[in-house]
């Protein structure tokens, strides 16, 4: 692969062109409002003027880029506004979603990493649990969430004022994010542990390192690059899952906002949400890649 050593004109120009082409295609298929004024007989001999607004186009209800921008402007220029529980600035919603994602993601790492180590270290553990992992891994978040609601039904932790601070739906959301996001961490950690070079294990054997020291001085540092690949993929999945979870449980957040705006026929805001979700996901992935490359060279 050729890396762009210096930023050529193309490296700046072509991405813009790509975005422009996509927006162009979007404008082409999206609908527009057409107001038609007709004069017709009302049936009693009087001529009346009727003004009809209709949407026309290939996908008539899809808002055009310009309409999307106009409708989204209040959410973007005041990204942290709070006008109501489900009417907040776009970054405020994002923040709410990120908070939930981080909790679920940390839970995923906390559970996934030890399981990965056990899989990597013990052949018997792998034989026992690998089949069930392979079966649970492809299950969609939409399937896990109802189970979470059932598992944690009746859970209620109230804050000082008696309001539910952490209820069934919160627990179910965390459960869903954690169980969906942990698989890349589990599998990559296992691969990393299995890939620890025999040379390093020989050093541990010759020095008769204790199990704990072998883990902290040899196994963890050696498999860290693999683990970080897993961490990065897990974060990507956690971010995917959050949208689905918020849609189902109606929590305020970027996914909840998207679903609510669909129900409110504010289609432009769906597009705003999608672009935001994509951008945030991209930024998260870049940040994790940075952390990953640091550990790779170490």
């Amino acid at each position: 692969m050729k890396l762009p050593g210096k930023l050529s004109l193309n490296a700046i120009f072509l991405p813009f062109l790509g975005v422009l082409l996509c927006i162009g295609g979007w404008a082409l298929i999206s609908g527009k409002s057409v107001t038609k004024t007709t004069t017709k007989d009302d049936g009693w001999g009087d001529m009346i003027t009727v003004t009809e607004t209709k949407r026309v186009g290939l996908s008539a209800d899809l808002p055009a880029p310009s309409e999307t921008w106009v409708a989204s402007k209040p959410y973007i220029v005041e990204p942290f506004a709070k006008r109501g529980e489900l009417d907040q600035g776009i970054l405020r919603f994002t923040w709410l979603s990120l908070k939930l994602v981080v909790q679920g993601y940390l839970l995923a790492l906390l559970i996934g990493t030890p399981i990965g180590f056990l899989l990597g270290l013990s052949r018997n553990f792998t034989l026992a649990f690998d089949p069930i992992i392979q079966i649970l891994r492809p299950v969609s978040p939409l399937a896990w969430l109802p189970l979470g609601m059932v598992m944690f039904s009746g859970l209620k932790i109230a804050d000082a004022s008696g309001r539910t601070a952490f209820g069934t739906s919160d627990a179910a959301a965390l459960f869903t994010i954690a169980i969906c996001a942990m698989w890349p961490t589990v599998l990559n950690t296992a691969v990393g542990v299995r890939a620890v070079p025999q040379d390093y294990l020989n050093v541990a054997k010759v020095l008769k390192l204790s199990r704990f020291k072998t883990l902290t001085k040899i196994l963890i540092p050696s498999s860290l690059p693999y683990m970080f690949t897993g961490f990065r993929l897990s974060l990507g999945i956690a971010w995917l899952v959050i949208v689905a979870v918020e849609m189902l449980i109606g929590k305020p957040g970027i996914g909840g906002f998207l679903w609510q705006q669909y129900n409110a026929n504010s289609f432009a805001h769906i597009i705003l949400s999608i672009i935001t979700i994509g951008l945030i996901g991209f930024i998260l992935d870049r940040l994790m890649s940075l952390a990953e490359s640091r550990f790779r060279t170490a």
Binding site: D199, N202, K205, V206, K208, I218, A298
Partner: peptide, 20 residues
């Protein structure tokens, strides 16, 4: 019967731990 630090070993490749 097993490995131990009473035998110092120098391998063909030095087997140093690169993170230390």
């Amino acid at each position: 019967t097993g490995p131990g630090p009473d035998r110092g070993i120098v391998f063909q490749s030095p087997c140093l731990l690169p993170w230390m």
